[in-house]
Design a protein around this nucleic acid. Structure first.
Lengths: 146, 146
DNA sequence: GGAAAATAGTTATCTCAAATAACCAATAAT
DNA sequence: ATTATTGGTTATTTGAGATAACTATTTTCC
């Protein structure tokens, strides 16, 4: 049924895309059960680790455009997971923090994410899994120099 | 400037997404200079390797929905790169082949793609690059069992 | 001290890839 | 022969991500 991919199945870009789709299909389905997207999960995680950071910082860290960040963070606020409080230092700015509910919710998300990562590691085996992470991190960092 | 990613920077899914974006930024820009998308390139490559295959097969092989495949292949046809001829065996079906122009064009695309892959390999070093491919292929294959 | 430039947040809008639904003609299945 | 399936297509929707433009503040620096 499947045709010959030719040089494609040795191309990093092609493989990265297909691998990413496959992995996101799994984690995406898990998160969707809680009405969360991978981006939502990432945002909560970063806010948890950097309480008081502003939208621009969080968005830039995750490679999200600040303009697209607005509806996302508003959704999180509306769900009672995130607090947007005017910043004391800079009256233009907003401090983002997780609510208590946000923190406990994120904890369950982390557990699910860990289970997902375990599935991936099991599928690849520990050695290949470890071999995968370093180059991915190296490549991922390429985005930042923007 | 960049905040703490917390557990995120060890998560395969997150790293895959960022790495894929970084890599696609490079190859995408290269291809865009010839008014091609990565998907366009992949389609030409598969047709070249499997002359006479039909739209459904090509689309499925690449994980593209057949309905979204239509405008793409029509664009390639309009550019004189692909031939859509009625199939002899099955009168519903269409045989896809590259035109001569399509073949020579694809050859230049392959050269550019190879230069891109070389850049990535140089960035990672040969060892890490090789270590990356196997697990990616394993993960990419997960998509197929659909 | 004050004009000019940069920054934080926002709204509104656009583009484009991917998903859904519905359909026809032809072939395969029972 | 009737039914189900398959290959190709149209039309439409959804959703992510990009662009433009604006306000209010803060920073820069002459």
């Amino acid at each position: 049924m499947a045709l010959d991919l030719g040089p494609l199945d040795g191309h990093v870009g092609y493989l990265l895309r297909r691998a990413q789709l496959a992995v996101f299909a799994d984690i995406g389905a898990v998160l969707a059960a809680h009405a969360m997207s991978p981006a939502d999960y990432a945002v909560l995680t970063v806010i948890d680790r950097n309480p008081g950071a502003g939208p621009s910082q969080v968005a830039e860290t995750l490679g999200i455009q600040k303009t697209n960040f607005v509806p996302l963070i508003r959704r999180m606020e509306a769900r009672g997971l995130v607090l947007r409080t005017p910043s004391a230092r800079d009256r233009r700015s907003v401090d983002l923090t997780l609510t208590e509910e946000g923190k406990t919710f994120l904890a369950t998300l982390h557990a699910m994410a860990q289970a997902h990562v375990d599935r991936v590691r099991d599928h690849l085996g520990p050695a290949e899994y470890e071999a995968l992470l370093a180059p991915l991190q190296r490549l991922a960092r390429l985005t930042r120099p923007a």
